[in-house]
Each structure stands twice: as structure tokens, then as C-alpha cells.
Amino acid sequence: MLKITYFGNTTFLLEAGENSVLLNPGKWDGAPIVPDDIDVRLIIATNHLDDALGNATAIASHSKAWILGNEETIEKAKSQGGKPWLLHVLKTEEPYEIPGFKVTAHPLTRVDPETGEKVENLGLHIEMGKMRVSYLGDSMVRGPFAQLEADILVVPISGEGVFPVKDAVSLCIDASPKIGVAMRWSSEEQTVKFSKYVEQFAQGCTPLVMKPNQTLTTEWSAGYEFKFTLS
């Protein structure tokens, strides 16, 4: 069973068994999405920008969690006072694995909202709680994620340096996940369109637009039937 909690923007907490992974604990307008004292085992930031890395260092310091990211991200975490023994560079295409958890990062790109330049953003393919989760972070490209089998696909939809709705929907069509979760939207209209289009054009995929602090629980009932509940 995998439990996914949404905090807003691109921040999610994935929990299965004893493992808990915080994705992109970013800061928006200087304010962190999650508090420093949240207890997690792993933190993964898909890029080094504030809206992804955010207060990861402070959280890691409090909960002794590892921070995973590309080299630039880890360097930045270091510069923020991150403990070296808690920092780990995720190499692309190389799986990182601990018992009950496996993540493979794939090189994607996003746009730096301040400079307008493209920067590397990792797309994550996570296996935990017997679920496969494709998490695109702040990506504006899909990379290999259309070909990766995933039960849950988490995609940005705002179009502001990341996927617009149409590309998010298109990926839901091609990747055929069981659930397509929208993140990082800038208007309600985007969420409405995402749901409408996925429901309509992505066969077998259920669109989800989660509210902050809402929890999605997924499991394989009787070992083969995919089930989910939303708090």
C-alpha cells in the first residue's frame, strides 16, 4: 500500500511501510510548503531551484533524512549547510535503492523562472509500496516517461516553464497510468481541463486533482486489483 499526501505546488509525501519520501519541499515566495520539523526518511529535489529544494536542508537536519538530487542540487544543499553524510547525488538512469524503495532519475529539463534558461530537472520513476510512480517534478519535457510503466503519474500542468495541460494529458494518454495526478497549476481552469481531458481521452486513467493535505491511498486488492481512496 502506498500513501501519497499532497502539500501543494509540486510537494508530495510518499509513505509505504517504514519508508517515507518527501518530493520537492519547495519554497514559494519565500515560504516553505512543509514545516522544517516534518519527519521523513528521504527527500528528493528534482532541481536546485527554490521551488524544488526549498527547506530540504532544514528538514533533513531535523529528521536526519537523506537529500537526493542531481549534482547541482546537492551542491546547493551543501551551500545551505546540509550535512554531507545526508546528501546523495542521484545519477541519471542509475537506480538508487534501499529496502522497500527504488528510484531511477531521468534527465529532463525545466525553465528557470528568473533567468528563463533551461535547467536540468530530474524525472523520477519510483517503486515503493508495490506501486510504480512516475513523478515529473517541474519538467517541461517528458523524456522516457511515456515508455515507463507506471501506476501513478504525477505531472505539472501550469505551462509556466513546465508542462502545459495539453502535454500533461498527452503523457497520460501515452503512459497509460491508472491515475494521473495534476500538480503545480496556476488556475482552477487548468485543473478542470486536465480532469476533463484525461477522463475523456486517456482511456483507463483516472484524473486526480488533490487538495493540500489530502491523502491518496493506493493498493493492490487481492494482489491484482488496483484500488485507491482519496481522503
Binding site: M140, R142, A146
Partner: peptide, 11 residues
């Protein structure tokens, strides 16, 4: 053969 490559996608 790959079904799809987005702009900037690289293999």
C-alpha cells in the same frame, strides 16, 4: 524504435 520524443528529449 521509440513511439515519441518531445522537444529537447535526448536518448
Amino acid at each position: 524504435t521509440w513511439p515519441r520524443m518531445n522537444p529537447d528529449d535526448k536518448k
